[in-house]
Design a protein around this nucleic acid. Structure first.
Length: 271
DNA sequence: GAAATTTGACCATA
DNA sequence: TATGGTCAAATTTC
């Protein structure tokens, strides 16, 4: 049972407990990773920021659950979405999206599940098929559209979009926004998702007295709920722009190479 | 030859 | 009417 389902069924406290446990595990991981990073390479700063954002995300979820969400009791209404004018009209059932969502108002056939910001090809355990690519106005990079590979076989309606974010100006770090829409109803192939890097994009550091450094960051806005765990957080080097075109199979291959070469990996491997 | 990807066109929405 | 999401034929890859 995922977070959304849990909250819907009155299991908020259990979810909060799980998130708290996840935070504790993340703290352990933080303490393990930080000492082995070179403070002069810039990686330490990046990793610190990633941990901050991860904790920010979990804080948001906890606050969201504790305060209670007016939307939590709403049932996703199943509607039939039929595309006008297409040769093969879609007859599948779609999740009706609440119209208030900011940033994806045009999308009516799927619910925004969450977002991931990744520095690397992000293999999330699902097989995806690319079905479109578009240049987005006011963006320097195109957006790729993927749907679950089981959309045909199992009728899974999950989709995601991948778009390279604007860099921080240094050009050294490329980040990719991955937005997920619609719940998977297909069976996963048993592959876990070992290379999540970051979850949210905004956080404000607030110092608390009696907590460790990693737990001192509190969110100030609410993003989509992350449905992935980060027990295997992993940072991979910068990658060339063409990685945005990777299928998940290609991502898995690339990451296999990466993991074999770390920690002595050089930029050359991506050339 | 089948499967996956690319790409231009179509359609819905703001 | 501009923009973004999806379709489906064409093309590429395996």
């Amino acid at each position: 049972m995922n977070i959304l389902e849990s909250s819907t069924h009155g299991g908020c406290q259990a979810v909060i407990n799980e998130i708290e446990h996840q935070r504790a595990l993340m703290m352990d991981l933080h303490d393990l990773i930080l000492p082995i990073l070179d403070p002069y390479s810039g990686q330490e700063k990046l990793v610190q920021q990633l941990f901050q954002d991860i904790f920010s995300c979990s804080s948001k979820v906890i606050s969201f659950l504790e305060l209670g969400d007016n939307n939590s009791g709403k049932q996703a209404n199943l509607i039939k979405y039929k595309r006008k004018g297409s040769k093969n009209n879609m007859e599948g059932y779609m999740l009706e999206e609440e119209p208030k969502e900011v940033g994806n108002k045009r999308r009516k056939n799927a619910q925004h599940i969450g977002s991931v910001v990744t520095q690397a090809p992000y293999f999330d355990g699902y097989q995806w098929r690319k079905y479109g690519q578009k240049w987005i106005s006011k963006a320097k990079h195109f957006r790729s559209y993927y749907r679950c590979a089981n959309s045909k076989g199992q009728g899974c309606l999950a989709t995601k979009t991948v778009q390279q974010k604007e860099t921080d100006g240094s050009g050294k770090v490329r980040l990719f926004n991955v937005d997920y829409y619609g719940q998977h109803i297909c069976k996963k192939d048993g592959i876990i998702h070992p290379y999540a890097v970051e979850t949210t994009s905004h956080s404000v550091p607030i110092v608390h007295d009696n907590q460790s450094s990693i737990s001192t960051f509190v969110n100030n806005d609410v993003h989509g709920i992350q449905d992935e765990s980060y027990e295997n957080l992993f940072v991979v080097p910068d990658m060339p722009e063409y990685f945005t075109d990777f299928t998940d199979i290609e991502m898995a291959r690339a990451l296999e190479i990466t993991s074999m070469n770390l920690p002595l990996i050089s930029e050359d491997i991506w050339a």
